[in-house]
Nucleic acid binder design. Structure first.
Lengths: 154, 154
DNA sequence: TGCAGTTGGTTTCAAATGTAACTATAAAGA
DNA sequence: TCTTTATAGTTACATTTGAAACCAACTGCA
């Protein structure tokens, strides 16, 4: 154990990644920081998880979705959605009733309580986004949108 | 339950977030897609988790770090690092010995096996990054770096 | 010295998450 | 119609993750 078993051949350099310039890493750090920041605004206050908030946000935007459609729109998997919905319905923040044309399908909506929370949290989320965008000038904001569009293509 | 308890005042619109244009959401989707893509390259093949790979990547770049320093550099918490290291050491991919000036502190390095894995995975990660960057033209790439720098300020 | 506070790191326990199996309904084909 | 296959959603189990408690070693200071 104390003697090196084989010296690294002199010519080989290993070329480690420079994480601080590595795009996937930078994206990950940035994304986590931002999402966590927003979550800090509502988590304790409303006992609301990030996934629950995402479900609420999409139901605010599109009323009457099924669980499956929520999953599609949030890029969450259906089990996660099912669990988030169980808590939200239990807490009286989302109403669920059966679609009359298809008894498997649920029809989901925010309740009044759900809307009340939404109407507090959504502006806070927007404010966080704005704080981020404020670091950029107008040119940069436009490039950012264009760049994100291209990176997400396909 | 069947009678609405209070009608939503007619003037109030609720202003839901448009997730598809909401920056934090877009960043999250993009980041997860990219990181998961890279992870697909090594997870099954080397039985290596994403956190383990991150630890290896940072040890490739900076030899002899302590666990604490790894945590700082990866923005992971120390419990996650501790667990990743336990597996990596067990698997013979990282060596750990005690710092002689401070017996709490560990001195961590990739082993030969660790380097061998690194030297396969790092180029794959770089290739993924390149595939992403290939979607942009030179202008856009430069703006992206600049924008990320500004977004991460402070 | 010797005590109080801090730091590096691991362990423990609870909560979150993912995978696969399962139930119920619906749709499609013979 | 009867049988097969697909879909919506939940449940069960195993794994991962995070928070807090914990232990050991170090530091500062009386």
């Amino acid at each position: 154990m104390s003697t090196p078993r084989k010296a690294t051949p002199p010519g080989i350099k290993h070329a480690p990644l420079e994480l601080e310039h590595f795009l996937p890493y930078r994206l990950s750090i940035l994304s986590n920081t931002v999402s966590q920041g927003i979550a800090d605004d509502y988590q304790q206050r409303y006992d609301l998880s990030m996934t629950e908030w995402r479900v609420m946000a999409v139901l605010a935007r599109f009323e009457g979705l099924s669980a499956r459609e929520v999953a599609d729109r949030t890029a969450m998997d259906k089990v996660a959605v099912s669990r988030a919905l169980a808590r939200l319905v239990e807490a009286g923040r989302v109403s669920r009733h059966m679609a009359d044309n298809d008894k498997r399908r649920s029809v989901l909506d925010l309740t009044e309580d759900g809307w009340a929370i939404h109407d507090v949290v959504a502006p806070m989320a927007r404010a966080r986004e704005q704080a981020l965008l404020d670091k950029l000038d107008e040119d940069e904001r436009q490039w950012l949108v264009r760049i994100l569009d291209k990176l997400q293509e396909r």
